[in-house]
Design a protein around this nucleic acid. Structure first.
Length: 422
DNA sequence: TCGATCACGC
DNA sequence: CCCTGACGTGATCGAT
């Protein structure tokens, strides 16, 4: 230990990362260890019943697909599926992969009007994914005491996020009604509840803070619906005249900006022409000029330094920026834009976890942190402590960093993870 | 065993 | 014009 400290401490200090180590990474270790040890209780009966339901429905779809395709084949093989769809049935193909025509969800959705088998395959894919990865996967990982225990990795991601393996509890379905049923099967011990608290728009708030863009800061300070506020400013209409479609498009632009999106991908996202998507991006940058200035600044700085860093000095090296390969260089630029935002969000969440963990130890000894999903924390506690735990989570998550825009978190509780999501 | 494809999360 | 959204994990296929 002494040898490691004497070798590594000066290196960290030189890079301005000693505080990152002492105040974030090191104290987080114990917190994560306790979370891993606590695990999450799963209703195994409900899970295995659900698995049975999925199997039966997948089997029905399987025979539908064989009938519609006029022959049997391995639906799980993209190669065989592609041959059936594009060679035998002659359906129109979209983009290519390295090995043939793509059969991904994007492509199948476009084929919906062309042949009923597309819809059947989409549904088949959803069911078999839920069955194999979640129903079977979680049952396989179940410990004898009825709890699943993930492993949180601190040294895997390039941005400072955690990752979760064996089982991955950071990608439990939420998007579809059928998929989110899996969350209903994450339950507390008898007499307990699950409390779920999540940051609202943390990455966009950090973009507003870090870029210092006045318009974007004002949109958050107004306390309203941020995507609708964005739409109002970008489309130049009164807040009350923002349509559902305008909000949807503004949301897609907000989302894409954080990742360094192109006009092409944005147009794919919102279903417009590339020209129209570019017009939205231009309007966005005209509305929030500080964001564009920040993006130019961060890429320029990254080219000079060879790395980017978060507010807490977590660093990512970017050798890609000096590549002669256009695609690789472009990738480096997108990473330079995204890492400081995503990474600072990860830093903030880690600080919040440490703060929550300390206060729970002092004030709610029966409560324990059980999961983290990037912008969301889940605590299991006695039902009688639900209100206190919710308040504690909200206070610590919101108070952990002082930004030039409000940092807000919402907390709910329930008798399972789905309910606790609120 | 491993790369490719696909699909789930944020 | 290049070619096209960050970060992850896991199941499955199929070539080796």
């Amino acid at each position: 230990m002494d040898a490691l400290y004497s070798a590594l401490e000066p290196k960290l200090r030189e890079r301005g990362q000693w505080e990152l180590f002492e105040e974030i990474e090191l104290p987080l270790c114990r917190c994560l260890a306790e979370m891993e040890l606590a695990g999450c209780r799963v209703d195994s009966k409900a899970l295995s019943d659900f698995g049975g339901l999925l199997s039966r429905r997948a089997e029905e779809l399987e025979s539908d697909i064989y009938r519609l395709a006029d022959g049997e084949f391995n639906i799980n093989s993209p190669k065989q599926l592609g041959e059936v769809l594009f060679d035998r049935l002659g359906l129109s193909h979209g983009k290519k992969t390295k090995t043939g025509w793509s059969t991904n969800a994007d492509v199948l959705e476009k084929l919906r009007g062309e042949h009923p088998v597309a819809d059947a395959v989409l549904e088949y894919r959803q069911l078999t994914k839920l069955k194999s990865t979640y129903a079977d996967g979680l049952l396989k990982a179940l410990d004898p005491d009825g709890r699943v225990r993930t492993s949180f990795q601190m040294t895997v991601t390039a941005t400072g996020r955690l990752s979760s393996t064996e089982p991955n509890l950071q990608n439990i379905p939420t998007r579809t009604d059928l998929g989110s049923e899996i969350r209903r099967m994450f339950v507390p011990e008898a007499g307990n509840v699950l409390v779920d608290a999540d940051y609202s728009q943390i990455e966009l708030r950090l973009l507003a803070h870090i870029s210092g863009d006045e318009g974007m800061r004002a949109a958050f300070l107004s306390g309203g619906d941020f995507h609708a506020e964005t739409a109002s400013r970008v489309f130049g209409v009164e807040r009350k005249d923002v349509t559902h479609e305008m909000r949807r498009r503004a949301k897609a632009v907000n989302f894409g900006i954080v990742y360094g999106i192109s006009a092409f991908s944005l147009s794919q996202d919102i279903g417009t022409t590339q020209k129209e998507a570019k017009a939205y991006m231009d309007a966005y940058f005209a509305t929030f000029p500080g964001v564009r200035a920040y993006m130019d600044r961060v890429v320029e700085q990254a080219r000079t330094d060879g790395y980017v860093e978060t507010l807490y000095h977590r660093r990512r090296d970017l050798p890609e920026l000096s590549s002669s390969n256009f695609n690789l260089r472009s990738f480096g630029e997108r990473v330079a834009l995204n890492m400081p935002i995503q990474g600072t969000a990860a830093d903030v969440m880690k600080l919040a976890m440490i703060a929550v963990w300390k206060r729970l130890k002092a004030e709610l000894t029966q409560a324990r942190l059980v999961l983290q999903v990037h912008d969301e924390l889940i605590v299991e506690c006695p039902a009688a402590d639900a209100e206190k735990a919710s308040t504690l989570l909200k206070e610590e998550m919101e108070g952990v960093a002082q930004l030039s825009v409000p940092l807000t978190a919402d907390a709910h509780w329930g008798k399972n993870w789905l309910e606790a999501k609120g």
